[in-house]
Design a binder for these strands. Structure first.
Lengths: 147, 147
DNA sequence: GCCCCAAAAGAATAAATATGCAAACAAGCG
DNA sequence: CGCTTGTTTGCATATTTATTCTTTTGGGGC
């Protein structure tokens, strides 16, 4: 079994279902008639530039999607957010200078369906919501983030 | 030092320069007056949903960027690519049925500046290049991928 | 204050991953 | 073929990470 074929198999396995460890990967490969030790797989995974998440090895592309984790976003927001106001169907978020971008990214990925989209400047973010009531709701939730 | 502040520090450290191991992270935190053992950091990294790459721990966002690795793309392309033709400033890539998407993604991320963009169907990809000569060049490079 | 509960952290250790080194293998050349 | 050179792999092991179990910490309520 040559390097190329083995690595292709690895990619296919990882694309289809979670692979949690290198020994698990070794077993699944063996089931397909491809023998390799953990040491070899360690080298393969590096060559393929795969990353290890708590849910298994992933292609870098497969990552942005599974953003069900919000702890990181929450911390970024409370770290930089200075002031929040609702204005019509917008929420205006002020941040420490220069830090609007990371906060906006967090708002985009935190998974609140009330947030339609965001526009970030240097220290100001406009968060677009459906209507004024929703804007006020989002404002309240932002203020409540630091428990 | 409470959880929230420590995790914020972790995010900042990781955003600024590579953190290769949890013990290294522990040392850098200590240098900022924040003591924590490796066990605690293991739990923090999971809570923050960070991923481990061969170049250190990263935020999922930081990943698409460092795509200097092409081995994965190369394997995906040679696995599914069936035929390549140049036509004007386009390259037409045929793949095994249903596999145009992963190949197109690989073409998009392999980092060839000659490739302006791609459109994928079910088993066909149109690769847009600047002109006919470039299209022929890309075709040749694709054919040469399987060494 | 004291007591109780829950969350957080550490110590010890199990589990997983990376790596130095030697053996196996492959490709080219005389 | 036999020799050299470079790559790939496995084995043994060092290093790193996850987990279990225990201790500490940080609030409420009284």
């Amino acid at each position: 079994m040559n390097v190329q074929r083995r690595r292709t198999k690895i990619l296919n396995l990882i694309r289809t279902r979670p692979v949690l460890s290198q020994s698990q990967l070794s077993q699944r490969l063996k089931a397909e008639g491809c023998h390799a030790t953990q040491a070899t797989l360690s080298r393969d995974l590096r060559a393929l530039n795969l990353v290890k998440t708590h849910a298994g090895y992933k292609l870098p592309d497969q990552l942005g999607a599974n953003g069900d984790n919000t702890e990181r976003q929450r911390l970024t927001i409370i770290q930089f957010m200075v002031e929040v106001q609702a204005a019509g169907n917008l929420v205006v978020v002020r941040t420490h200078p220069g830090n609007a971008s990371p906060v906006a990214l967090s708002l985009d990925t935190i998974g609140w369906k009330e947030i339609v989209g965001t526009v970030a400047g240097d220290d100001t973010i406009l968060v677009v919501t459906a209507n004024a009531a929703t804007a006020r709701l989002v404002r309240r939730r932002l203020l409540a983030l630091n428990n």
